[in-house]
Amino acid sequence: MTPLAENLFFQLLVGGSLLGSLLCAIAWGVAGLRKRLQEQRFLVDRINSILPQTQCGRCGHPGCRPYARAIATGEAINRCPPGGDRAIRRLSLLLNEARVPLDPAHGEIESAKVAVIREAECIGCTKCIVACPVDAIIGAAKHMHTVIASECTGCDLCIEPCPVDCIDLVERAPAFRYWSLAALATDPLSGEPCHD
């Protein structure tokens, strides 16, 4: 009686299964690699799709895509105030970086804004129309202009060029939210946080 390990049939079985699993692993790896390759091709696009697209330039770049390009080559991810915490969180997941607070040098997190033209004072100079990155201002020369509120990104680029200062940034009504995490984590009786 030969030991089991010397048995030819047993050796073939073990060897075959090992080889088979190796082949499976390689096939799996190749499939994963192809998927990754497809993802990889558009790194800048993927970063850009996370940025809020307000085109405000507060990050120090002329628009969202240039900033995305800079991030792809190693710039910090916390320079986008309109994106706020949400954008930082998603970028940190994508780029495997730490979740850091927003860089205060580039502005504070603000609630969403919308530009409103005081129409009585507008002189119809069309300067704001030229400045608007998303064509959200309509009007013609020497006629009153107005902002399409639903398209306005609140980027404040139209404020500066206006010669008569008739554009205001007004806070948008915040999204209706019934459940608040902060309220949940507080003691209903004492009002103190339940955890540290």
Partner: peptide, 16 residues
């Protein structure tokens, strides 16, 4: 919805 909004703005910016 923020994501959808930003995609919309991106389209408008590209058109601009």
């Amino acid at each position: 919805s923020a994501q959808r909004q930003s995609r919309h703005w991106q389209e408008r910016f590209q058109f601009h």
